[in-house]
């Protein structure tokens, strides 16, 4: 096990290098720099050169690349062109909001998804099964940005129950801790709800088909033959093996947790990683683009590793080589 983890971590290093290098090449393959975005016809060539010199953009790309890698090896991600702050600070500031949003959404996704699937399978062809199948299929097809718009229209505009965007109200800035927390929760409901419900539809669809798949398995027949109740057979004997693939999915959710949902963050003006990348991509803020890509790729690789390790831990069959 330890060897597996070590091997995978060692393999991850060239992979990460490949990803950031490809991103670096892609960013620099496009003509133009951050200076082009200062859309001022009076920007003199001298001032322009000054800007480019200040950000090190006057050097050849190869030099910039080597410098960037060198700094990265020292744990230095550089300085953001846009925020004029260390990139690490920009990214670390955006991480907690994203984790809060995606963590809540993921919890909602799993709880709702498992619940929908289990109740549907418990009574096949009942009205609940039908409603839940149609509902999860419908939600699965809906684009999340569209659902977000609908949620804003209904809950924020027509009913006026919840705020439509941002993480805090202006009025809550000076409020007490409890009031600020309540304010934060109210802002969290719509974005996390949309993300979680869309995710739950996929989880429910997936779990339902896995549960139905193993309905005829011999170990379930044996459990039923032993006279165990339907509920026990479903919740203990069928659900456990059916949840195994979900463990893998959970590991794969780590990149989602970190990178968040860019679209939802943009729509709800949620100050997370997705929005940081969004702004950086438009502003040609190269250090931030590279840092967020690096973060995303690390999360994908770590997620894969966690998924595999979890799988081995949870499923005894995966432990011994076949």
């Amino acid at each position: 096990m330890a060897r597996l983890i070590l091997r995978r971590i060692l393999l991850a290093i060239p992979l990460l290098w490949l990803v950031v290098t490809l991103t670096f090449v892609a960013v620099h393959a496009v003509p133009g720099t951050v200076a082009d975005l200062i859309d001022n016809p009076q920007l003199s060539p001298q001032a322009r050169a000054h800007i480019e010199q200040r950000f090190g953009l006057d050097r050849p790309v190869s030099v910039q690349y080597v410098r960037w890698l060198e700094a990265l090896a020292h744990g230095d991600l550089g300085v953001s062109f846009l925020y004029r702050q260390p990139v690490s600070r920009v990214v670390l500031r955006a991480l907690p909001p994203t984790l809060l949003l995606t963590g809540t959404a993921l919890a909602l996704d799993l709880i709702l998804g498992i619940l929908l699937a289990v109740i549907a399978v418990a009574r096949p062809r009942s009205w609940f099964d039908r409603v839940s199948t149609v509902l999860s299929l419908g939600l699965y097809g809906m684009p999340s940005f569209w659902l977000a718009g609908l949620a804003i229209l209904v809950f924020a505009v027509i009913l006026g129950w919840l705020p439509a965007s941002h993480m805090h109200s202006v009025s809550a800035i000076g409020a007490s801790g409890g009031a600020r927390f309540a304010d934060l929760l109210r802002h969290l409901v719509l974005p996390a709800g949309v993300l979680g419900v869309v995710g739950a539809a996929g989880t429910a669809r997936y779990l339902r088909s896995t549960l139905l798949d193993i309905q005829d398995a011999r170990f379930l027949l044996a459990a039923r033959a032993r006279g165990l109740s339907r509920r026990r057979v479903l919740l203990v004997h069928a659900l456990r093996p059916a949840l195994l693939p979900l463990v893998t999915l959970l590991g794969l959710a780590i990149p989602f947790l970190v990178s968040g949902s860019l679209v939802i963050e943009v729509i709800f003006a949620w100050p997370g990683i997705g929005r940081v990348l969004w702004t950086a991509a438009w502003a040609r803020d190269v250090p931030v683009i590279l840092a967020v890509t690096l973060l995303g790729a690390t999360a994908v690789i770590a997620g894969n590793l966690v998924a595999d390790v979890l799988y081995i831990l949870v499923d005894p069959r995966a432990r011994s080589p076949r």
């Binding site: 992979l15 990460l16 892609a26 990178s259 990348l277 890509t293 995303g296 790729a297 994908v300």
Partner: peptide
């Protein structure tokens, strides 16, 4: 694996923005 390690939506947005 390397292609899977790219954060896809990020890549899409980067590519189209650039």
């Amino acid at each position: 694996d390397a292609f899977l390690a790219f954060p896809i939506l990020f890549l899409l947005i980067l590519a189209v923005a650039l």
